[in-house]
């Protein structure tokens, strides 16, 4: 196995060779299926033929060292790579069987179904209320002000933020603490009622207490939402995710239930990374 090239192993190797990983995905309906997904930034290939299924209603963690393509991968799922000049995508991404990159797919509609939370909390420089209300408003989800208020309140409650901000809904979102800002961003994503929430290292700019709250929140949200989380923290992946995928240098090295990946990794590189020998 060590003699095989990295690319070969990903394409034909790990998933096919270890049927339990594939069996896991077969048992549950997949929210996303990616087939032979390659991404190029100009001449540089960032992802090399990724085949990965993301299960519905589960938390999937993407781990791997910096520059391995996790963020590129997650951004393909809601076409956030589209505006990047020189970015080219090959292969297929299917959401509930529908090709996300098909010509008749409107990325605006897609992003309403697939919400995203970013590495650095990025609330709009508007009030807390406006931040959450923005999505429903542009998508026309509320007919009246009262309905919109309902959506805002419900979203803030689901993001476990309502009690902390209920008296300061008109204050700027940027005046909240870092952890609160990130939960506000989650509430903003939840407000458009997405099926999937993508989280790109949502805790990397937060302190441990704020991180714990976000993780708790992810735990609560799982089941109702399909969550894909990119993380640098092994412990975080182990704590919050049901499935884990390990990326390395643009390859998907190994994927499977989180317990299996962390206790009995099949690939040497996975083991090396999670035990801290490199990364």
């Amino acid at each position: 196995m060590r003699t095989m090239s990295v690319a070969d192993r990903t394409r034909s190797g790990v998933i096919a060779e270890f049927p339990d990983a594939a069996a896991g995905t077969a048992a549950k309906p997949a929210a996303f299926e990616t087939r032979e997904l390659s991404v190029f930034y100009g001449k540089k290939q960032a992802l090399k033929g990724i085949n990965l299924d993301i299960d519905k209603g589960e938390v999937t963690a993407l781990i791997g060292p910096s520059g391995c393509g996790k963020s590129t991968y997650i951004r393909c799922l809601n076409r956030m790579n589209d505006p990047i000049p020189g970015c080219r995508i090959e292969g297929k991404v299917l959401l509930d069987g529908m090709d996300v990159y098909a010509a008749d797919i409107d990325p605006v509609e897609l992003r309403a179904r697939v919400g995203m939370v970013f590495q650095k909390p990025n609330p709009f420089p508007k009030s807390v209320w406006e931040n959450v209300a923005y999505g429903p408003r542009i998508h026309g989800l509320a007919a009246t002000r009262a309905e919109l208020n309902d959506i805002v309140e419900r979203s803030l409650q689901r993001a476990a933020l309502f009690d902390e901000v209920k008296d300061r809904l008109q204050e700027p979102g940027t005046s909240l603490s870092g952890g609160q800002q990130q939960r506000l961003c989650i509430a903003r994503a939840l407000a458009v009622d997405p099926d999937v929430i993508l989280m790109d290292e949502p805790c990397s700019a937060l302190d441990p207490i704020a991180t714990a709250k976000i993780e708790e929140l992810i735990d609560e949200l799982s089941g109702n939402y399909t969550i894909v989380i990119v993380t640098h923290s092994m412990q975080q992946a182990a704590r919050v995710s049901d499935m884990t995928a390990f990326f390395h240098l643009g390859d998907l090295v190994e994927t499977g239930p989180t317990d299996t990946i962390f206790t009995t990794p099949r690939d040497e590189r996975t083991e090396g990374y999670i035990t801290g020998r490199f990364g």
Partner: peptide
């Protein structure tokens, strides 16, 4: 980050 945030909730 502001553009991404808006795009992320589905703004055209």
């Amino acid at each position: 980050s502001i553009r991404e945030a808006a795009m992320g909730v589905g703004a055209s």
